[in-house]
Amino acid sequence: MCNPIKLLIVDDHQMIIEGIQSLLEDQTTVKIVGTATNAKLCEQFFITQTADIVFMDINLPDLSGIDLTALLLKKYPTLNIIALSTFTQGTYVRKMIESGAKGYLLKNASKFEILKAIEVVHSGQKYISPEAQEALNYELNLQKKLPKITKREKEILVLIVEGLTNSHIAEKLFISIDTVDSHRKNLYSKLNVNNTARLVGFVNENKYLDYL
């Protein structure tokens, strides 16, 4: 008989943890080896124990599940992480996958889907729930349509959105005011706006920085 798949649940809501434990308590193919309600406890778990799969909540109190996923995979590259979230926005799905997650489940997933996701991911494939996949497809299509900017332009755009003037940006980035002004004009051109107010409006309305 094959060893059961070892599962760690990371979620800051005890009700979710207990719900998954209840759903899987009669399973012989999956064994819940631990739970953690925040990133710190999750990291502590791996000091003395191991898991094959981690169910990862995105909204944790001390570190986002997106950042924690990237952190864990840097230390444990063979770990399989499946996001388990209430967030259906494509941005969250994309960022989790970009961080290295192998799956994305919604918290209203059925027992059947949870087990399917575990089996699929454990076999080396990806599993994204249909609703999350639809949101991800929309997100990726939208991303393709948005204008591309350089790394330096992004740095300056972030500071413009924060309300900094050209002189403050120049001081912060150790570049000349003329260089900042040149980048600002390039941003106007690329994003098809003609002043700072419209530039900031475009960024906020389209959540543009989330796509960069």
Score class of each variant (00 low, 15 high):
Cys2Tyr: 05
Ile5Cys: 05
Leu7Phe: 07
Gln14Glu: 07
Met15His: 13
Gly19Ala: 10
Ile20Gln: 03
Ser22Gln: 10
Thr29Trp: 07
Thr35Ser: 07
Gln49Ala: 12
Ala51Met: 06
Met56Val: 04
Asp62Arg: 09
Leu71Asp: 15
Tyr76Arg: 06
Thr78Gln: 13
Asn80Met: 05
Ile81Cys: 05
Ile81Thr: 05
Thr86Leu: 11
Phe87Asn: 02
Thr88Asp: 00
Thr88Val: 11
Gln89Asn: 14
Arg94Trp: 07
Ile97Pro: 01
Ser99Pro: 06
Gly100Thr: 03
Leu105Met: 03
Leu105Pro: 01
Lys107Met: 04
Ser110Met: 06
Lys111Arg: 12
Ile114Asp: 00
Ile114Glu: 00
Ile118Phe: 00
Glu119Ala: 13
Val121Leu: 06
Gln125Asn: 14
Ile128Arg: 01
Ser129Asn: 08
Pro130Asn: 10
Pro130Val: 14
Glu134Gln: 11
Ala135Trp: 02
Leu136Gln: 04
Asn137Ser: 13
Asn137Gly: 12
Glu139Trp: 13
Leu140Lys: 00
Lys144Val: 02
Leu146Asp: 02
Glu153Leu: 06
Val158Lys: 12
Ile160Lys: 09
Val161Ser: 07
Leu164Tyr: 13
Thr165Met: 09
Thr165Cys: 09
Asn166Met: 06
His168Pro: 11
Ala170Gln: 08
Lys172Tyr: 10
Lys172Asp: 12
Leu173Asp: 08
Ser182Lys: 15
Ser182His: 15
Lys185Ile: 07
Leu187Phe: 11
Ser189Tyr: 15
Asn195Gln: 13
Glu205Phe: 13
Glu205Cys: 09
Asp210Leu: 08
